[in-house]
Simulated assay, not measured.
Amino acid sequence: MKIVIANDHAATDLKFEIKEYIESLGHEVINIGTDSHDSCNYPEYGAKAARMVAAGSSDLGVLICGTGVGISLAANKVKGIRCGVCSDTATARLIRAHNNANMIAFGARIVGSELAKDIVKSFLETEFEGGRHQVRIDMISAIENEE
């Protein structure tokens, strides 16, 4: 799979660890940065990554900022994106299985690198269950299309 990864300055170090980890799992990683610790604006990176996923140039996305919340809010403004903030592996599995999330976010100030790796692995290895969950995804898409 092709995985886009994006972050702000608070998550640069963790991003590099996660990028390497995803590659070790056999996936291609598209790093759209930032690669710096200089202050930057997470909405730019979250939106850019989300546009790549929405356009199909990346299969899934991983977003990291201080808490995971800000960058996920930006990503979720892009039509077709379902991004959830996860601080544990159960949530990472369930947002894929039940919500067909195509992006995940977490906070570099919230989770350590080993937990972050477990979260990403859970997210990437879980498939959408469909069935009754598809009805709810369709409802979310209908809301999105009202705007």
Rank of each mutant, 00 (worst) to 15 (best):
I18H: 12
G26F: 08
C86Q: 02
I104T: 01
G26N: 11
D13V: 12
I143A: 10
V53R: 06
G66S: 04
V29N: 05
T34Q: 06
I5G: 14
M139F: 13
G56W: 07
S72T: 06
L124G: 12
A90P: 00
K48E: 12
T91K: 06
I137P: 15
H133Q: 09
D38A: 09
F123V: 08
K48G: 01
L14Y: 03
R109Y: 11
S141C: 07
D38C: 00
G33I: 00
F128S: 09
N76W: 12
K2T: 08
N99H: 15
T89G: 05
I22F: 03
G66R: 03
S72Q: 11
D138K: 06
S57F: 04
S141P: 05
S24Y: 00
L115H: 02
D118A: 15
N99W: 08
S113W: 00
I140T: 11
H37G: 05
G68P: 15
K19G: 04
V85S: 03
E129P: 04
T12Y: 13
E129I: 01
M52H: 07
K77N: 13
N145E: 14
L63H: 03
M1L: 05
H133L: 09
V111S: 07
K121V: 01
Y42K: 09
I110L: 13
M1R: 09
G46N: 05
D59T: 06
K48P: 09
S72M: 10
A105M: 04
M103P: 05
H37I: 12
M139P: 05
D59Y: 08
D13F: 06
K77M: 11
P43G: 08
T126G: 10
I64G: 15
I119N: 11
S141E: 15
G56M: 08
K15Q: 10
K121I: 02
S24V: 00
L115S: 04
R82F: 08
S24M: 00
I3H: 06
H37S: 10
A105P: 14
E129G: 05
A101C: 13
A108T: 04
V29Q: 05
K117M: 08
K77P: 15
A75C: 09
E44T: 12
H37K: 14
F106A: 03
I110G: 08
K2D: 13
G70M: 03
Y42C: 12
F106E: 00
V85E: 11
A11F: 02
E125Q: 14
G80I: 07
H133D: 07
L94G: 02
C86P: 11
C83D: 08
S39N: 13
I119L: 09
H9I: 06
F123P: 11
E44A: 13
S113T: 12
C86L: 02
A105Y: 01
R136Y: 02
A54L: 02
N100T: 04
E20T: 13
G61P: 05
R82Y: 08
A74V: 05
T67L: 06
E28F: 03
L63A: 04
C83L: 06
D88K: 00
V85P: 14
V69R: 13
A74E: 09
E129R: 07
A11W: 01
D88T: 03
